[in-house]
Design a protein around this nucleic acid. Structure first.
Lengths: 212, 212, 212, 212
DNA sequence: CAATAACCGAGACGGTACGTCGAGTCTTATA
DNA sequence: TATAAGACTCGACGTACCGTCTCGGTTATTG
C-alpha cells in the first residue's frame, strides 16, 4: 500500500481515468509551443539576468509570445518560475547499497547538484521573496518537493539500523540546510568536495547500534 | 597675520588628529533624525510587507522623508536594507565554558535567534536576489559578517582539543546552513529546540582526542 | 474559396482605396476619450496656470489619465501643446472684396483674434522657449501655419494691383510681427482698434499703380 | 531722526552722491566676484543651452558659486536673466539727421541688432513665459525699456513734421513688433536688409505735410 | 457544415516605482 | 552678523513593468 500514495499522486496528473484537469474541451486548444517557449525563455533569463530582471514582459518578448498568453497559463511570475525550475517529481533518493558513508555521499552530491543548477540557484531567493507575500505558494512547494524527500531519508536512516544523535527530521534539516546554502551561495564550484564533507558529518551523527 | 588665516583654513581639513571621517565639515549637516526614521521605516516595512513591497518610495512615505534624502545616503535599496538589518558587528561568538555540547547549544541558539528576527528573515531572500545583479555587495556582507564568525568558530574548535570528522570550514558551513535555512523558513518557532539538535550533530562531529 | 479568405485578409490592409493612416489595426484601440480629455486639460491649464506650470503630470491629473497614456500619444510637452493650440488648418485668409483698407482690417482682426486666444497667448512663449532645444519643431509649425498664410497674403497683394514699398514677404513679416507682439503682450484688449491701425500702415505701404 | 530713514530710502535710488544702495554696512561684505561670475555664466548658458536649461543650479555650477548666493542677490531666475540681458539704459534712439528714410533705417538696424544678440534672443521667450506667472515683472521691464523708447520715437516723428497715417503709438508698436519677431525667429541673419524694409514701411506711413 | 468558444498576438489601459534633477528654504561653520 | 556651502522638502521628469482589457482574427470541437 505504500506505493498506492505515489500512484495517487501520479494519477492526479496523468493517471488513467483522469477526466478533467480543468482544461476546457471546447474552443481552440492551447498551442503547446507557447508553453515550452515560455519555459525555455524563463530558464534562460533566470540564468542570464537573475530573478528580478526576469519580468513577465521580458519572458514574453524573448519567447515571442504575448503577455496575456502567459497570464492565461500561470497566475504569477512565482508560479511560472517554480514550474519551470522544479518541473515535477525530480526526486533525489538515498539508496542503501552497502557503505553508509559512500551512500550518503552519493545522496548529498545528487542534492547539491540539483540545487546548484544555475536556474535553480537564481530562482530560489526570488521565490523565497515572493513567499513573503503569498505563504501558500511556499507550502505547496514544500509539500511537493521536500516532504517526499524527508520521508525517503527517514526510511534510509531506519534501514541503516543506526541510532541518530538527533531526531531524524532535524538531521535531515541539517543536511538539506547545509547543502542548500552552499549551493545558493557558491554554486557548483567544489560542490562535490563539500557534499562529501557533509556526508561525513551526517555519518558521524549516526551511531552504530550497540552490540549487546 | 594674513598667512595665519590661510593656515587655519588648511588645518581645518588635514591637521594632525583630524578625524576626517569623509563627512564634509561645511554646509548644512545631515539631519540624524532622517537616518533613524528611514532605518525604522525600513525595518517596519520589511516585517509588515516583505522585501518586494518595501520600495524606496514607500519607505520615504512612511518615514516622512523625501526620496532624494534617502538616495543621498544609500545608493540602493539593497544597501539600505543591509545596513538596517545588519547594523554592525553584531557578532555571535562561541565561548568555551565547560561542556562542549552546552556551549555549542548556546552558540547555535544565539545564531538562530538573530537570523529568525522578522526583519532579518524578510530581508535575506531579497538581498540574495539583489546579489545576482551586484555580486560585490554580497562579498562585502560576507566579509563583514561571516568571515569573523568563521574565524571565531575555528578558534573555538581548536580550543576544544577535539578532532572534527570534517574540515572545520565545512563544519561551520553545515552548522550555519542548517540554522540559516531553519530561521528563514520556519522563523523563531521551535528554534531553540532545533538549535540544540544542531548542536548535537556538530558535537558528534567532534571526536574526543585519542588517549594514547 | 479557402484562398479567398486569405485574399480578403490581405485586401483589408493594402487594397485600393485603403486609407492607411499609419494607425495600427491590431491591438486594443486607443480610447479617444483619453485624447480629448488630455487636450482639454492642456488648454485649461495653459490658460489658468501658464505654460511652465502645465506639466505633463498636472495634465494627467486633471484629465484623469495616467502619464504614460500621454507619453504614448505625444513625445513631449511641446508637441502636445502645439497640437492642442494649433489643431490644424486654422487658416486666416485675406479676401479682396472691394476696399483694400477694410479688407486688410478684417484680415488683421482675424489674425489678432486667433493669436489673442488665451491658450494661444499662453502657449507661444513656452513653445518658442522649447524651440531653442528642438529647432525642428519650430520649422514644422512654421511650415504648417505660416507658409500658407504667407502665400495667401502675397496673392492678395498681387490681386490688388498695388505696388508695395517693400517686398511682399517683408511686408507680411511687418504685419504679422506687429499683430503677434500685440496679441502676446496685451491680449484681446483693444485688439480691434490696433488691428485697424496696422491695416492703415500696411495700406499706406501699398501705393496705387501709376496711371501711365 | 524720524525723517532720516525715509531720506535714506530715497537717496538709495536718486540722491546725489548716494553711497550705499540698501546693502547693509555690517557683517561680511558680498564678494563682487560672485556677481560678475554669475552674470557671465548666465549669459553663456543662455546662448549655449537656451533658457530652459539655464537653471539656477547650472548657473551656480558654472560660476563656481552656491545656489543660495544667487538667491541672495536675485529673487528669481527671471530677475537674474533680465538683469544680465538688459543691463540698464541701453537705449537705442532715433536721430533726425536729414533724410527721414535713412534715419529710420539706422534706427531699425540699431534695434534689431540689439534684439538679435544671442543672449537676448534666448532670454526673451523664457522671460515672456515667466511673465505669465508674475505679470508685474513684465510691466517693470516695459517701464524700464520700452517707455523711454516710445517717447523718443514720438518725439522723432513730431520733429519730422510728417503726418502719420496711424497714431504714433501704434506705428511704434508696428515697427517694434516687426523687428522683435524677426530678431527672435531668424536672428541676425539678413537682419540689416529686413531693417531697411521695415524702415520703408514706416516711412510710407509718414505722409509729407501738405504745402498749403 | 455552421455555430460556438477558447485561443492567439498586439497593444492600450490605470497604477506605481524607478532614480535624477531643479526649485527654493534652512542650518551650520566661516570670515 | 552676513556669507558660502550643502542638506533639506517638494514635485516633475520620462521609462519600465504590473496585470487587465479590448481588439481582429484563428482553430478546434460541437449541434
Amino acid at each position: 500500500m505504500p506505493g498506492a500514495l505515489a500512484d495517487d499522486g501520479a494519477s492526479a496528473y496523468d493517471g488513467i481515468g483522469a477526466i478533467d484537469d480543468e482544461t476546457p474541451r471546447v474552443g481552440r486548444p492551447r498551442d503547446p509551443r507557447v508553453d515550452s517557449a515560455v519555459r525555455e525563455a524563463t530558464l534562460r533569463l533566470l540564468v542570464e539576468d537573475g530573478y528580478q530582471a526576469t519580468s513577465i514582459q521580458a519572458i514574453a518578448r524573448l519567447a515571442g509570445v504575448s503577455a496575456p498568453s502567459i497570464y492565461r497559463r500561470w497566475s504569477s511570475k512565482a508560479e511560472l518560475v517554480e514550474e519551470a525550475v522544479f518541473p515535477t517529481g525530480q526526486l533525489v533518493e538515498p539508496s542503501l547499497t552497502g557503505d553508509i558513508g559512500s551512500d550518503l555521499e552519493t545522496y548529498c552530491r545528487g542534492i547539491v547538484e540539483h540545487l546548484a543548477d544555475p536556474a535553480v540557484r537564481a530562482a530560489i531567493p526570488g521565490l523565497l521573496t515572493e513567499y513573503q507575500t503569498d505563504p501558500e505558494l511556499f507550502q505547496r512547494l514544500v509539500q511537493r518537493s521536500l516532504t517526499p524527500m524527508r520521508a525517503a531519508f527517514a526510511d534510509f536512516v531506519a534501514r541503516t539500523g543506526r541510532q541518530p544523535v538527533a531526531d531524524v527530521q532535524s538531521l535531515f534539516d541539517v543536511m538539506i540546510g547545509a547543502l542548500f546554502v552552499r549551493a545558493i551561495s557558491t554554486g557548483a564550484a567544489d560542490a562535490e568536495a563539500f557534499a562529501s564533507q557533509v556526508a561525513r558529518v551526517i555519518s558521524a551523527a549516526l551511531i552504530a547500534e550497540e552490540a549487546s
